[in-house]
């Protein structure tokens, strides 16, 4: 029997743009199972990143509920939301969002600091797992885009979260690097039993995936189950 990792129920989110309100998501519902690799696809501005932000508790929906690991997260306080992000979610940004003053290794250790941990050995292991063991002391400006995204993947895994959320992780990379990063992300999550929700334009980016959610103009239009191939 499959366990629910993330359950999104009737979520609506609107933004204010000047005088008018823009609906980013309208009544979106879906569920991702534990260990599942899910793609969130759709054109630009369709609400994919908004949905990912809501699951990561980086933002709050206007309506609806989001249940992660059995807990409702939309009503969390700022502090509780921070704790939730730190313990249960690994987030990979399109623009990497590494801190330039820290080395690659320190960037991976960074998510451990809120819980007053600094497991340098685990950080080195993760850096090795993404193929950058030899660049631990390099700072982000000294790394290529692909290397920075690898560091970001390792950082997302630092606290061993159950869910990895990736927002266009290959968007800033060339095709070759994009393919390598996608493979790395896929294999890492499968090996470690993580649920992966990945936002992308390109539904061919990761193979194999378990399901594909297609969002258009804030509405979840299709949920496609994909058999491993």
């Amino acid at each position: 029997m499959k366990n629910s990792s993330v359950a999104v129920r009737s979520v609506t989110k609107t933004y204010r743009r000047g005088q008018r309100r823009v609906t980013a998501l309208l009544n979106v519902s879906f569920e991702v199972w534990q260990g599942e690799l899910a793609l969130l696809v759709g054109p630009s501005g369709s609400g994919k990143t908004t949905l990912l932000n809501l699951i990561a508790a980086l933002d709050r929906p206007d309506r609806g509920e989001i249940i992660v690991g059995g807990s409702e997260i939309t009503g969390l306080s700022r502090s509780a939301a921070a704790l939730y992000r730190n313990e249960r979610v690994g987030f990979i940004f399109q623009s990497y969002n590494l801190l330039p003053q820290l080395t690659a290794l320190e960037n991976i250790i960074l998510p451990m600091l809120p819980k007053r941990r600094s497991d340098r050995r685990r950080a080195m292991e993760l850096l090795g797992a993404v193929g950058l063991g030899h660049r631990s002391s390099h700072r982000p400006p000294e790394l290529s885009g692909g290397e920075q995204q690898r560091v970001a993947i390792a950082r997302a895994l630092a606290n061993d979260p159950a869910i990895i959320l990736a927002d266009e992780p290959t968007g800033n990379l060339d095709d070759d690097n994009a393919r390598k990063i996608a493979e790395l992300l896929s294999s890492t999550c499968r090996e470690r039993g993580k649920s992966l929700i990945l936002v992308t334009h390109n539904r061919e980016m990761i193979r194999p995936v378990d399901r594909v959610f297609d969002i258009r103009a804030g509405i979840l239009t299709t949920i496609e189950s994909v058999s491993a191939s």
Binding site: R85, P114, N159
Partner: peptide, 12 residues
Amino acid sequence: AMLLALGFSPMQ
């Protein structure tokens, strides 16, 4: 904002 996103509490 990045620190908050990584799970640093508002106080931290």
